[in-house]
Design a protein around this nucleic acid. Structure first.
Length: 585
DNA sequence: AAGCGCCGCGCG
DNA sequence: AAAGCGCGCGGCGCTT
């Protein structure tokens, strides 16, 4: 049984109870939006009291529905996110034969509309009237969600051995819950610490558009060394010309190219770039815009990357520089439990390919050390470079030279990525462990290949087509590994969330005692506050920190078993309980 | 003035 | 060092 929630008009929703096949059970219930939170709370409570499996909420888009519920102080345990599931089922090679995948694209095939508010907590994004009018699709919504759920269940039922696909849809959906919860809770952020770092690096705060003192000094030094008092270090074009005039025959002003030359201007210029980057990316403007009541509320986008990795929108949460991580500080009496999966992708590759030798090299905490110990390469650095090269498709440099050694030691693993690359070069789709498939190459890619295959094709056309084919092959090569790693990470977080719920229960605080800063639901309980591909942060009352760390560790092991069963592959974590993010590893 | 592509660089 | 994957973002400078 599940309950499908759908919007009927700007102020009401329909709650339709459905069975395992998506057929209606009884009459749908019409609710005013204001009564939804209480309804959801009561259903969650009733299931807990009865000791049943949790209610499964089915809705179009978790970021909107669940964002609103969280703002109202309500958490749920399980959901089915129709839009995210739709995308997976439409594209997966596992469901390619179903009616669902072969029918024409629908409204469901469009990406979710982005949330409008810059930061959480958002006031009802879902029931924003102007949005309803603009999208012009309100009336049929109820039917539509129930019907879509039914279509998806039918599609899954048609897939033979759909176990992995079911796990993927469940993981993707709980990921969407977690994304909404993290956005709502926010990452604890001390603006005074951040400001102190900025002042140290840049000088005292100045108005937007003016150069802080330390940058001004560096800019002056650069100009005087070059004997050019108009050059603008913020403009690559301007700098490139000035450096060429000074005799540096560089073709770009990127850091690695500059670093190859010796000239008095290089040091202050690199220094300028480093600090200017801090100012523009994570300076005072960013702080004012993104830190609300001592929390950073990035907008996570589950499944935002083709591989299934999450993306983020606004705030640049995928690129929090190490420079300012000291500002991520636990509240008084709280701790941060910071954990990352060690060498996740090579371990995933070992499991995907059932390469027992490679898995054995990962028995310890440091897989690269294990590869060295097996005598495959000489140094840890070589092991790392070779593995990355294998997964990214490097052909030149040291990485390329080490490939034969890797191929000899781990033929199964290397064969898997090579086959994925060849498939991509032919324009075919590849699929992750749980069943997410790569997008098909675009129209212009196909056209380039077609053109090169014609009798009169020029050598330039042929070379171009080959190059494009190899580009796409590197993408599909990496897709299977990166995408399967993303699935492991989703399952890790899902298990972690389950364990955290068990520590404190999911009882929201009484309305009068809500602390807006940390979101109403998470005032006293351990909760996830950050996720970045293979790394998580849990914010927890200090007295629970040890238990949380144990849950995080156990969840990683469980995730490995969920995906790969008995295959002997380990997923060790680096884990630390700290006050400040910067104190972890 | 707004839109867009490029550059450069932060993260995994 | 930076080659080889995936992202987001701000600033510049050009076009419309």
């Amino acid at each position: 049984m599940a309950i499908v929630l759908s919007r009927t008009d700007p102020t009401s929703v329909m709650a339709s109870t459905v069975d395992e096949r998506g057929e209606l059970v009884g009459a749908p219930l019409a609710l005013e939006f204001s009564a939804l939170a209480a309804f959801v709370t009561e259903r969650e409570r009733a299931h807990r009291a009865a000791g049943d499996a949790a209610e499964r909420w089915v809705w179009s888009d978790s970021s909107r529905w669940y964002g609103d519920l969280l703002t109202a102080g309500v958490r749920v345990q399980r959901c089915h996110d129709l839009r995210l599931s739709h995308a997976i089922l439409r594209n997966s090679t596992l469901s390619a034969g179903t009616e669902f995948a072969r029918s024409a694209p629908s409204e469901w095939s469009r990406p979710a509309e982005p949330l409008t508010a810059a930061v959480a907590p958002v006031h009802s994004a879902l029931f924003d009237l102007s949005d309803t009018i603009a999208s012009g699709r309100s009336a049929a919504a109820a039917d539509d969600s129930v019907a879509e759920y039914r279509r998806q269940l039918r599609a899954i039922a048609e897939v033979p051995d759909a176990g992995r696909l079911r796990l993927l849809l469940a993981a993707e959906s709980v990921g969407a819950l977690i994304a909404a919860e993290m956005r709502s809770a926010g990452l604890p952020w001390r603006t005074e610490v951040h400001d102190a770092i900025l002042t140290e690096e840049l000088g005292p705060r100045v108005p937007y558009g003016t150069r802080p003192a330390k940058l001004e000094v560096l800019a002056g030094r650069i100009r005087s060394i070059l004997g050019d008092n108009t050059v603008n270090p913020d403009s690559p074009q301007s700098m490139l010309k000035a450096l060429n005039r000074a005799g540096l025959m560089i073709t770009s002003t990127s850091r690695w190219e500059l670093a190859e030359y010796t000239h008095p201007v290089i040091a202050p210029l690199l220094e300028y770039k480093k600090r200017a980057r801090l100012l523009t990316a994570n300076g005072w403007t960013w702080m004012d815009q993104w830190i609300v009541d001592g929390r950073f509320h990035p907008d996570y986008v589950p499944g935002g990357a083709a591989t299934g990795r999450w993306a983020t929108s606004g705030g640049g949460a995928l690129q929090l520089p190490r420079q300012i991580r000291a500002a991520v500080t636990a509240d008084p009496g709280w701790k941060l439990v910071v954990a990352d999966a060690a060498q996740l992708e090579p371990r995933i590759l070992a499991a995907l390919s059932a390469d027992t030798s490679m898995a054995a090299a990962g028995r310890g905490v440091d897989m690269y050390a294990g590869i060295v110990a097996s005598g495959v390469v000489e140094t840890r650095d070589q092991a790392k470079v070779a593995m990355l090269g294998a997964m990214y498709g490097a052909t030149t440099g040291e990485s390329g030279r080490l490939m034969p050694k890797l191929t000899r030691a781990y033929p199964r693993a290397i064969r898997l990525v090579e086959q994925a690359a060849r498939a991509g070069e032919r324009g075919e789709l590849v699929t992750t462990w749980l069943g997410r498939s790569s997008p098909a190459p675009g129209e212009d890619w196909r056209e380039a290949q077609w053109r090169a295959s014609q009798p009169g094709a020029s050598t330039a056309e042929e070379a171009r087509a080959r190059s494009r084919a190899r580009d796409w092959g590197r993408f599909t090569r990496n897709f299977v590994v990166q995408g399967s790693a993303a699935e492991w990470a989703l399952c890790w977080m899902a298990e972690l969330r389950k364990g955290l719920l068990a520590i404190e229960g999911m009882n929201p605080q009484p309305p009068g005692r809500r602390a807006a800063a940390s979101g109403p639901v998470f005032e006293r309980i351990p909760h996830l506050v950050f996720f970045l591909h293979d790394e998580i942060i849990v914010h927890t009352p200090a007295e629970h920190a040890e238990e949380v760390a144990a849950v995080v560790t156990a969840a990683a092991a469980t995730s490995g078993r969920l995906l790969f069963g008995d295959f002997p592959v380990d997923f060790p974590l680096g884990i630390a309980t700290v006050e400040r993010y910067s104190d972890a590893k």
